[in-house]
Structure formats: structure tokens, C-alpha cells
Simulated assay, not measured.
Amino acid sequence: MPVEQILSNAQLVTADRVFYGTVVLRDGLIAEVNEGPSRLPQALDLNGDYLLPGLVELHTDNLERHMTPRPGVDWPSVPAVLSHDAQIIAAGITTVFDAVSIGDVNPKGNRMQKLPAMLEAISKASEAGLTRAEHRLHLRCELCHPDTLTVFRDLVENPLVQLVSVMDHSPGQRQFVLESKYREYYMGKYHLTTTQMDEFITLQMANSRTYSDRYRAAIVEHCLALGLSVASHDDATLAHVEESARYGMTIAEFPTTVEAARGCRENGMQVLMGAPNIVRGGSHSGNVAAADLAAAGLLDILSSDYYPASLLQSAFALAAQNQRIGLAEAVRMVSLNPARAAGLTDRGEIAPGLRADLIQARSQDGLPVVQQVWRQATRVF
């Protein structure tokens, strides 16, 4: 006999509207979506809370913070993954693309050395059924690092890889058109002296000239041959966007200007921006505000980036800030839209036949507080 659960008396946030209703779960899937409360005694009363689809996170480097909780401290890899996973599921994220960086712009960093342990830990924890969210991999390829292409080719065949992004964080490129901003950001982040920063800039610019264009072409070609979704990163101009579109990229991560975002939309690319940008009211790098793109109808996907809890909060905040964007549309940006952009057609909304990945959230003065989370109809939080 199929296992059936009934979740009733909830504000259902579907892909196009919000209404009080009941959801029936059966065999890990959503079997029915009905208006009004259930009269069956076995129905679970959600007390009028919101019932939303499980969130889909395409770009988070949150795992790195658990792998290295303090500078110079390397935490055991599987416990680090489980700690990260607990934070992800508590934020209502049921599908997470863990972003792992190929090519380290930090002159003092050890990201490249830790990559094998990170990937092995994610795979081991997932295969053992220890994770509560579903983990997939997002390879972030820093094009101005000499070893990026070689490492990419070694990792891209991992079955968990489903998304790849290409980026160039050298001065004068995309996010850092102004060298002054580049200096300010990296000297502060990596505690470099003026001399160290000068040497770092010289090296990065030389590497960009040597590797960036060649690596971008090779990586994208390989991804498209494997059927992987490919994202650009920090497009700043229409020329950047047109280049990304020519390569066949379908997702634009963090475009830095309205011009670039509009160009992405015109070229059929999904625009992804940071949820912290919405919550904080602007970009920490001084680039375009995500709320401004939303107001212009140029925002498709939100990503928690460095702060998992921001994802659900940003959807509610965006709906409250912008009268033209309802909660259903805002929630699509953190569920259905990212799922479809990554090629996942079995999740992302509350609809019959899809996976029963769900969140019960209570609004406390406009702040959504997660109460329960289900993944494929199994309660995991």
C-alpha cells in the first residue's frame, strides 16, 4: 500500500498564486493539490502557515566555510559536509549545488589542494544517505589560473556535476572594471601589503591574457557536449553578454549593470542575482542592486551565495518591497526557475506529479521562519 500524508490548512504557494488548501503526498510525490482544508482525521494541520516548494540553490560556497572555519584550520571533510548540510536544510533548501572553485585567486589560499577532499566528502556523505538535502556540484572555473583546464577535465565527469560557471577575476574584468575597487577588495580580504598587491595584479593580468579566452572556449565546448548547464559570471557590458550568448551559456550569474542584465534577457539567458543583495538592500561590491533588476523585470533567479538563510528571506522581502511582484513570483525565483535553469524538471513547485520537496514556514513580522522541511515526502527538518 502506498504511504500517504495529508498536509492541510496551509497557505499554499504554487507557481502562480497563494491560497489556503491541502496537499496530498504519496510515494514521495505530490499526488493532489486542493483548495480548502481536509476533513480527514489523519490530516496534519499546518495552522495556516505557508507551504512552499523546497528551495533550489544553484550557487553557494557555504561548504568552504565549514571546511575552513578559521584561517589555517582544516576541519575533517565529512563532518564539515554534514554541518553544511544541516545549515542548508534548516534554510529550506532541499536541492543544493555546492560550488567548488577550480583556480584560486587568493595568493595565500589552498582551495585547489582541498578540492579532492571536498568532492570525496560530498559523494561519500550523499551515497551513505547522511545528507538531508540533495547535493549536486557546481564547478566554478577561474579562467586566469594556469591549472584550471586540467583540473576541470579531471572533475567534470563526476556524476554529481550538473552546473559549470566560467569567470575571470583579474583586474579590469567584469566585476572589477576599476582597479581601485579590485585593490580595495583583495587587500582587505586577503590582508595583502601594497607590494604584494602590485605583484598579484601583475600576475593575474598576465594569466588572464594567456589563459582566459582559450580556457573559456574549451570548458564551454566540453560542457555543452556533456549536456551540462553553463553560466557566465559578472557580465558587465553588452559585449560580455553577447560573448556569453555566442558560447551557448544559458545562465548569467551576477551581472553587474542594468545594461548587462537587459542584454542577458534579450539573448535568452536567465539572470541570477544574490539573495543577500536583496536582504541587505544592495551589492557589497557597489554593483547594480538586485531589487532594481527585479523592478525592471530583469531578475529570474536568486542565490544565497554566502548566506543560506538569505534565500527564503529574500523571496519574502522582494514580495514585500515590490508591489508588482507577488509572493508566488518571488518564490519561483528560488525554486522553479533555478530548477528549470539547471535542467531539473521533477521539482521546484507544488504541483501533482512532482517531488514532494516542501517547506512549512511561519511569517513572523514578515520574516519567514522554517518550521518543517520534507524531501520526497520524508520529513528531514
Rank of each mutant, 00 (worst) to 15 (best):
E259M: 09
V23N: 10
C264L: 12
S208V: 02
T22R: 15
L52Q: 12
C223M: 13
S83F: 04
L130T: 12
E32F: 09
E134M: 12
A236D: 13
L82S: 05
C264T: 06
L354N: 13
Q376W: 00
Q113H: 03
R153K: 10
L29N: 03
P71G: 15
Y186R: 00
P146L: 15
F97Y: 14
R347N: 08
R70P: 09
L358K: 02
H284L: 06
S38T: 07
S38K: 00
Q196T: 04
E221T: 15
A320Q: 04
L119I: 07
R183Q: 06
E64I: 02
D292P: 00
R153H: 08
T345S: 13
E259Q: 05
P255R: 04
P53G: 12
L12A: 04
M112V: 15
Q321W: 07
D27H: 01
F176D: 03
P69G: 05
N267D: 14
H191S: 15
G109N: 02
S229H: 06
D213R: 02
Y215S: 08
Y190K: 03
E221G: 10
A260K: 00
N106D: 10
N158G: 13
L44S: 14
P2E: 03
V288S: 00
R262Q: 15
P146Y: 03
H240D: 06
D198G: 11
N207A: 00
A330C: 06
T378W: 03
E64L: 13
R265I: 15
I30S: 06
A315R: 00
V271Y: 08
A291F: 15
F316P: 01
E127G: 13
A90V: 01
G172N: 03
E4K: 08
P276W: 01
E157V: 10
L44C: 10
P276S: 07
